[in-house]
Write a protein that binds this DNA or RNA. Structure first.
Lengths: 126, 126
DNA sequence: GCTCGGTTTCGATAACTGTCGAAACCAAGA
DNA sequence: TCTTGGTTTCGACAGTTATCGAAACCGAGC
């Protein structure tokens, strides 16, 4: 590994063919291994809020300089959480001038949402 | 605490009014604090598979005796993971005769799915 | 009541995570 | 080039988690 110059976005098979809901078929171990890290990344209140702030930001992107002061945490700690979201493939980072902007990657989010989809009890047809 | 007789199902505000998608409004800290533990519970490959096996089981319920041998892990370890899902409010457990059956709680799952919903790029109207 | 099979709890241990301050890095401007 | 402000990385520490074997628990059946 030749020092990938920071801000790398690891993407866990971002564009894989989308998965049927969790409740329809037993998901294979490989799929679980790929998707669990994304849920794990969302499994922290700070990261969940960060994700929401980024995804709901006007223009679809949020500056770290806006994210950091929204929490009672140090800069390094916020950076650490953002890195976790990045490595989970949930967000992308881009540096422009002095600031770094984060943007949500809807692909994986959509895949997770589909996985959790539960058939409506009324329209269910097992 | 007077020994709650095992198999307690802690439910994190299961029937709270459902939340708008993560990408539409910045979610408040309280909501994040309530929902993050559920994502965290799904953030482990074993638990994700367990959840899938339970939710997709015929009749909507799965016996621990069927779940345990599906993994190369000890009984106590599987029980530990099931407890995590229980405490996250994702599943319910019921003992019938000698066996314990697990059943998915669709309410919270639906809430999580809604939270992750991303508006389709085509039909988006920001 | 005693035993037995299934399941959970307990106690221990190794590995991981969240947090911080210090240091390094990077782009902009003086 | 030097400084400055924004961001990430490093190193450390406390708290949490995954895993196991042993022990306890709980119904069923003898």
């Amino acid at each position: 590994m030749s020092k990938p110059a920071a801000l790398t976005t690891v993407e866990p098979d971002q564009d894989a063919p989308c998965c049927p809901p969790l409740a329809e078929n037993r998901i294979p171990a490989e799929t679980a291994a790929v998707l669990a890290p994304a849920f794990k990344a969302l499994g922290d209140p700070i990261r969940l809020q960060l994700m929401s702030m980024i995804a709901s930001a006007p223009g679809g992107e949020a500056c770290v300089c806006d994210l950091t002061p929204a929490f009672d945490l140090s800069g390094p700690t916020i950076s650490h959480h953002l890195k976790a979201l990045r490595e989970a493939g949930l967000v992308d980072a881009e540096r422009r001038a002095s600031w770094v902007y984060y943007r949500a990657r809807p692909g994986l989010m959509r895949r997770l949402a589909t996985l959790l989809t539960v058939s409506d009890p009324d329209t269910a047809q097992h």
